[in-house]
Nucleic acid binder design. Sequence first.
DNA 1: CGGAATCCCCCTGGATACTG
DNA 2: CAGTATCCAGGGGGATTCCG
Lengths: 132, 132
Amino acid sequence: MTKPKLRLVTPDQAQEGAANCKALGQVLDRIGDKWTIMVVGVLSHGPMRFNALQREIPGLSHRMLTMTLRGLERDGLVKRTAFATIPPRVDYELTAVGHSLTEPLYALAIWARGQQANIEAARAAFDASSTD
Amino acid sequence: MTKPKLRLVTPDQAQEGAANCKALGQVLDRIGDKWTIMVVGVLSHGPMRFNALQREIPGLSHRMLTMTLRGLERDGLVKRTAFATIPPRVDYELTAVGHSLTEPLYALAIWARGQQANIEAARAAFDASSTD
DNA sequence: CGGAATCCCCCTGGATACTG
DNA sequence: CAGTATCCAGGGGGATTCCG
């Protein structure tokens, strides 16, 4: 060990990593909540009305759906279209940006499904050894 | 348009989508919190000690770091190695599974950085029109 | 130095009811 | 049918303290 410093990454990579972490943090703050990805997932099939959306996602309260949609709309991930008819009707659909999000999300889903078994096994093993 | 039903996805794809959503939900429950990805990001550079880890992530409290590491360890994403020396020393490092997570995460980070500007713009526009 | 337990505050998010 | 406002409980998470 004669190295003065042990750096496993170059400063440039570290900068990259830091920037990525910040960016990742932002996205996760947006999509990391309980409902957002569900809504995006359902919406990825096509436009949908408010109530249809709620019916599609069990456990999602009226209020939470409103807030989730608001957030997504605010960030330009979904487009809201209101028809001033009686009864009123509002359609929600993914924008181009919203759709583009589904791709990396899909990659993550693939990983999730691939590692699911490993993770559950690890969890069981961990719980067993701490309970014992 | 002679189709009897307007389905943008086949039933099979819908099943896929549902399964993916579930899987995604699981991952996001794990990595969606405030600190986990930061820890994974820092650990992706190499093994690190508890205090070094904490110093690396501003705002991360002692307690939260403990809990975050516990969770990751439980799911087999990080490996914990304790040395019974005085003073005690504990190293944390990503496991193979943990490292494999960084890949889809990286894809997501790329997306994040690419869309960051769009999202901020949309957000500003949205806020402007609602504040007006 | 690393971890666990206690305390406590704040904010998320659910239920309900009202407006248009 | 869509959205907002109010109320309120539960838990996430920070500060602190004590143990090994």
